[in-house]
Amino acid sequence: MGIITISIDDELERQVRNRISAIGGFSKGALSRVFEEALRIWLSRRPIDHMVEPPRRFRAVRGKRVLAEASTLKELANELTKLRIDPRGVLILSSTQVKGARRLGMRTTARHRAGKG
């Protein structure tokens, strides 16, 4: 068994201890089991985006020519200002493609009894 010393927020620790007490009280290893479960859940999640996906790029394009490129829109806007390019004259694209059609959900508004009219 590995032994890890960690420090956590006081309030979080209080909540964890209260929850353990509420569901059957403290026993030997109760706290370790909670953290083990938390770590298993954390490991089962997908890694955060920047670890698996290439960084996103925004490009200002005129015709086929890329006039400016940056990793955020803010940086791209600054770059266009620096190059004295009117943003209205360029098409801004993202390296993350818009995939096909958007699915749009549907909302119900007023609910009436079905009937005439």
Partner: peptide, 19 residues
């Protein structure tokens, strides 16, 4: 005022909407 991208939205009943 920016150059716009055209996309398409599909509603739950299959209807299509130009975005």
């Amino acid at each position: 005022e920016m150059k716009l991208l055209r996309t398409r939205g599909i509603l739950a009943d299959g209807r299509s909407l130009r975005l």
